[in-house]
């Protein structure tokens, strides 16, 4: 079998370019993803890593919508709405999960503090929404009962 030199050169060039792209691009895109926060096993540690503090102020201006009972822990709908001004980010923590931090949403100016998603819950536990506004942390929590856990399998 003979492989001509030209095609080898081509393969190396294309492969090199792809590798370069896949190595460089995530670094730019992932600048904001906090590995420490997302891998933390304790909720307070995750909060400190993500937000720099775990000093939360319970606020009625943070509205966490979650079901009282989630029949299926694999899909638990969560909505966080805040009437606070100057909201910078909103994060969702599920205390009893292997890694409590589920998601962090960055809210730029012009975007409403109203975000919905669906999370997994391993067991009955407390869900906490943390809203960062004007450099301070405000929160709301709710206990959600889970009938079938959604983390293992």
């Amino acid at each position: 079998m003979s492989i001509d030199r030209r095609s080898i050169v081509k393969v190396i060039a294309v492969g090199g370019a792809l590798m370069g792209a896949s190595v460089l691009m995530p670094r730019i895109a992932l600048a904001a993803w906090s590995k420490e926060a997302f891998e933390a096993k304790e909720q307070t540690a995750a909060m400190k890593a993500l937000l720099g503090s775990d000093a939360l102020e319970e606020s009625t201006e943070v509205n966490l919508k979650a079901p009282d009972i989630a029949e299926n822990g694999a899909v638990v709908p969560i909505t966080v709405v805040s009437t606070l001004s100057g909201v910078e980010s909103m994060s969702i923590f599920v205390e009893g999960n292997p890694s409590p931090l589920s998601a962090e949403f960055i809210i730029p100016a012009g975007t409403q503090a109203d975000v919905s998603t669906r999370v997994r819950m391993g067991k009955t536990t407390k869900v906490t929404a943390v809203v960062k506004a004007n450099g301070k942390l405000y929160s709301a929590s709710k206990e959600v009962k889970v009938t079938i856990g959604g983390c293992g399998g």
Partner: peptide
């Protein structure tokens, strides 16, 4: 207008809603 940093505890086939 929207940025999300996600962990693996977001449900399969993730759903997001926001307003701007």
């Amino acid at each position: 207008v929207f940025e999300a940093n996600l962990g693996p505890s977001i449900s399969k086939n993730p759903y997001f809603a926001f307003k701007f």
